[in-house]
């Protein structure tokens, strides 16, 4: 019924943010009026490097930004983009399920891809190459059904093109 949180000291050896990441975050400091404003860029930096933002990373970002971890987590948890439990695959693909894509078989394509990759929606393949997720409107309704993989937009998906993508998933 109750889960009493225990205050844990962060062991210095288990820090997850490398000096490079920290430096990259610090590079944003001059660009914003307050440190708090760096929250989102920092999260993006961490996510880009670690492919997720673990709780420990949140604590460390908070230290950097002179905030409480809860304040970072507050912002972070609003965005479904940031995963916290495990890193997403090398390629992260969002299949659109909004109206246009859904009407043109987006959900069927997505189901097909999941079945083909052998994962559930939202999961990562065993080899860590690909994460498949639902996405809301990608703003490319004229190419429905479409999918965003990394920064690449895959248009007019068919089972065939999807299968091709699954063989070499790249962003």
């Amino acid at each position: 019924m109750t889960n009493q949180p225990a205050k844990t000291e962060t062991p210095a050896g288990q820090r997850v943010l490398s000096d490079a990441i920290v430096a990259e975050i610090k590079a944003y400091f001059p660009r914003y009026p307050t440190l708090q404003a760096v929250t989102l860029p920092a999260l993006h930096v961490v996510n880009a490097h670690l492919r997720h933002v673990p709780l420990q990373a949140v604590v460390e970002i908070a230290e950097l930004l002179e905030l409480a971890p809860a304040q970072i987590q507050d912002t972070l948890s609003f965005y479904g983009f940031f995963k916290q439990d495990a890193p997403h695959g090398e390629t992260r693909a969002w299949v659109c399920r909004s109206v246009s894509c859904a009407l043109r078989g987006g959900e069927e394509i997505f189901a097909y891809m999941c079945q083909k990759a052998g994962i559930e929606p939202g999961q990562t393949t065993d080899d860590g190459k690909l994460t498949l997720e639902f996405g809301e409107c990608l703003g490319a309704c004229e190419f429905a059904p479409c999918m965003l993989a990394g920064d690449t937009l895959h248009k007019n998906l068919t089972e065939e093109s999807a299968g091709k993508f699954l063989q070499s998933p790249t962003g």
Partner: peptide, 8 residues
């Protein structure tokens, strides 16, 4: 409402 894990 919640607290951050480890920071009650």
């Amino acid at each position: 409402i919640d607290v951050f894990p480890g920071f009650p």
